[in-house]
């Protein structure tokens, strides 16, 4: 399976939010303003790429040789949490500008379903290291794409007139439904 098809498949066809339903919790929270959406998106790309690569290395160089594949979940989630702490510390020390734009979203990514899913999916699909990196960037790119599109739509929805029960998250789900129809057009692409 070549790299380009992996990239397109994870970015558009099996979009992480619209067809796999992962990362919904931070997605609903952060997609109300465009600036926060962009910050969160870039942070997610960075964390997913780093965490997936490190998890892959841990799995194939520590867990498999020792025959401890069942420890996958525990090790991966602890590794992801540690990686997020490390990245936040690194950003704090090196670049205040970077911290201002994306550092504050980093703790929210620990419980993002998408990070853990991508780390485990790379193992399930038996990708090698390069394919892992490409898949991770594609998934995170799809997440950021969705965040940015939604932020622009929701900013317009804020001022619209609708029944009180639908304000906020319910109408966001209706928007997601329409976008899911739009993105299902990519189904035959790969």
């Amino acid at each position: 399976m070549n790299l380009f098809s992996i990239f397109i498949a994870s970015l558009l066809v099996n979009n992480v939010i619209l067809s796999k339903f992962l990362g919904m919790c931070p997605f609903l929270g952060v997609s109300t303003k465009l600036s926060s959406a962009v910050g969160m998106g870039v942070a997610v790309i960075f964390v997913i790429l780093g965490a997936s690569v490190v998890s892959w290395l841990l799995y194939y160089y520590a867990l498999v040789p020792l025959g401890l594949e069942y420890m996958e979940l525990i090790c991966f989630i602890l590794l992801i949490a540690s990686f997020v702490q490390f990245v936040e510390m690194f950003v704090k020390k090196t670049s205040p500008a970077l911290y201002k734009s994306l550092g504050i979203y980093l703790p929210l990514i620990t419980t993002n379903c998408a990070v853990l899913f991508v780390a485990m999916d790379n193992i399930t699909q038996k990708y090698n290291l390069i394919e892992t990196a490409v898949n991770s960037v594609a998934v995170a790119g799809g997440f950021m794409l969705m965040l940015v599109i939604f932020a622009t739509i929701r900013e317009r929805l804020e001022g619209s007139d609708m029944p009180k029960a639908w304000k906020g998250n319910p109408i966001a789900f209706v928007v997601a439904a329409i976008m899911a129809i739009a993105f299902s057009a990519f189904a035959g692409l790969v």
């Binding site: 998250n169 789900f173 439904a177 329409i178 299902s184």
Partner: peptide, 14 residues
């Protein structure tokens, strides 16, 4: 399909 999931969720949430 995912579309239906989002729609049903929106209705129940509302």
């Amino acid at each position: 399909t995912p579309t239906g999931a989002f729609l049903v969720f929106a209705i129940l949430a509302a």
